[in-house]
């Protein structure tokens, strides 16, 4: 019964999300798009976190997807919608290759290397003037779907839906067992037959692909990008704060955190234009200290009357 209620709630939320453009004007829809983008990034970051690997590379893959899509349109004359598909696949393929190197690292070393990746991509694109437009970035001939606010909203919702669907699959399939086993104790996981490298590579490739996809959607929705916007540290920091706030190791937690922080960040950007990142930092610290399981963990604790 509980499961049916959950599916019903998910279906209702999906219908509501899809129907939102009927009720909202352009500005709220743009905010909603930003929230959905961050939500997809937060959930995808959490998916890899379920294996215990803390990635700081979200912005790197997001930016890579952005640039891949933009350059496919500009340099290869590809149709924008088509470029979304190919940019997504390109990010995935690159992540798969990079995975062979970075997934040999663990803990802090993995995190720092993923952080460095974002910088490497940014610097490369910064300096490939003729190909990438250099620091001035790239301007596309137009915005996808003629810039129709509703169509852009639905496109972004589609990206989010794919991400949530994959995350749900991660929770329900044997990937859940594999990733949780790896997170808990690699030695024990190995002696239960779990091919650790293989599952980490699967998780890293899939989550990177999703992040690249959201980047591609982003650039086609705005019609331009620069190395500084595409690889903005915000795209790493904000999803991380959202997932921590909402509750890690689940789909629902990062979603809840994204709604709260996503809306709050719109407000914060207006109030403290240059200092809002500090607020996210403070949130991360406070959440880790005071409620390490996030809001979802807190709710669960209240319901069951014990630590989740």
């Amino acid at each position: 019964m509980k499961r049916n209620t959950l599916y019903l709630a998910a279906a209702a939320a999906a219908v509501l999300a899809a129907a939102l453009p009927a009720f909202l004007g352009a500005y709220p829809l743009n905010v909603a798009r930003s929230v959905m983008t961050y939500m997809a990034l937060a959930v995808s970051w959490d998916m890899l976190l379920r294996s215990g690997q803390i990635s700081f590379g979200i912005a790197g893959l997001f930016g890579l997807g952005s640039y891949a899509s933009a350059l496919l349109v500009l340099r290869a004359g590809m149709d924008p919608a088509m470029s979304l598909v190919f940019a997504t696949l390109f990010t995935g393929a690159l992540a798969f290759t990079i995975g062979f190197a970075v997934l040999r690292l663990r803990a802090m070393y993995f995190s720092i290397t993923t952080l460095a990746l974002a910088e490497i991509f940014r610097i490369v694109l910064h300096n490939l003037h003729d190909f990438s437009g250099g620091p001035e970035g790239v301007v596309l001939p137009g915005v996808i779907f003629g810039g129709d606010t509703r169509a852009l909203y639905w496109l972004c919702l589609g990206g989010l839906a794919i991400t949530l669907g994959v995350s749900w699959y991660f929770e329900k399939s044997k990937l859940h067992l594999a990733l949780t086993a790896i997170r808990n104790d690699e030695t024990s996981a190995r002696s239960s037959g779990v091919d650790i490298f293989r599952y980490l590579l699967i998780a890293f490739t899939i989550t990177s692909t999703l992040q690249g996809m959201m980047g591609a959607i982003q650039v086609q929705s705005y019609g331009f990008t620069t190395p500084e916007t595409a690889f903005d540290a915000n795209f790493t920091l904000l999803p991380l704060a959202m997932a921590l706030l909402g509750g890690i190791h689940s789909t629902l937690g990062p979603m809840a955190g994204a709604v709260l922080l996503g809306i709050a960040s719109e407000w914060l950007k207006l109030k403290i234009p240059y200092g809002h990142l500090v607020v996210y930092g403070i949130i991360i610290v406070l959440v880790i200290l005071l409620m390490p399981r996030g809001l979802v963990g807190l709710a669960r604790k209240r319901r069951t009357g014990r630590g989740a």
């Binding site: 067992l177 594999a178 239960s192």
Partner: peptide
């Protein structure tokens, strides 16, 4: 306990 059955067998 399932982990072994899933990944070893």
């Amino acid at each position: 306990v399932m982990i072994g059955a899933v990944f070893s067998r």
